[in-house]
């Protein structure tokens, strides 16, 4: 579980890193701690995997990545880890999840691909199919993006 300071840091860092020369000094002053302690805590959040990284999230539609395919794959239960690993190794795959199934929906592995063009998505899906040897899948292209945002934790 996270300490109170860690929660405060998550809250503040999800809003953004200030665009000034010494951004951590600014955050530390806001949170009433020292720059050293703040940096050490942020590094620790990274080490524990709570924070994947500090980085930029792009508005993908504005940079030309307009095709978005979610593919739901039916993978034998004993192969989920292996196949999850194969799919994850494709740099074009942004998300790879295992999810619960339903009696009429046997698809358990989900991958998402964002590319500039739909045909590129299809070509990548074909390479994924061959690499994993999984032939039962559903390709769900998006036709409209209704919402896409970053989660804001500890605000509800």
């Amino acid at each position: 579980m996270l300490t109170e300071l860690e929660k405060q840091i998550v809250k503040r860092l999800q809003d953004g890193l200030p665009l000034v020369r010494e951004p951590f000094a600014v955050l530390a002053a806001e949170l009433g701690t020292s720059e050293e302690e703040l940096l050490a805590t942020v590094k620790d959040l990274g080490r524990r995997g709570v924070m994947r990284r500090l980085g930029a999230a792009l508005q993908h539609l504005k940079v030309g990545y307009t095709a978005n395919a979610m593919v739901a794959w039916k993978v034998p239960p004993e192969r989920t880890r292996e196949v999850g690993g194969i799919f994850s190794s494709f740099p074009e795959v942004t998300h790879c999840y295992e999810r619960e199934t339903a009696p009429d929906w046997p698809y358990n592995i989900y991958t998402v691909i964002h590319r500039p063009r739909r045909e590129e998505c299809m070509a990548i899906i074909e390479r994924m199919r061959q690499a994993a040897g999984i032939d039962d899948y559903q390709v769900l292209f998006s036709t409209a993006e209704l919402k896409r945002t970053s989660m804001r934790y500890f605000c509800d």
């Binding site: 998550v10 860092l13 953004g16 890193l17 942020v42 959040l45 792009l58 940079v63």
Partner: peptide, 9 residues
């Protein structure tokens, strides 16, 4: 172009 620049959790 940059939607957010910060922590990715």
């Amino acid at each position: 172009i940059i939607r957010r620049l910060g922590g990715i959790f």
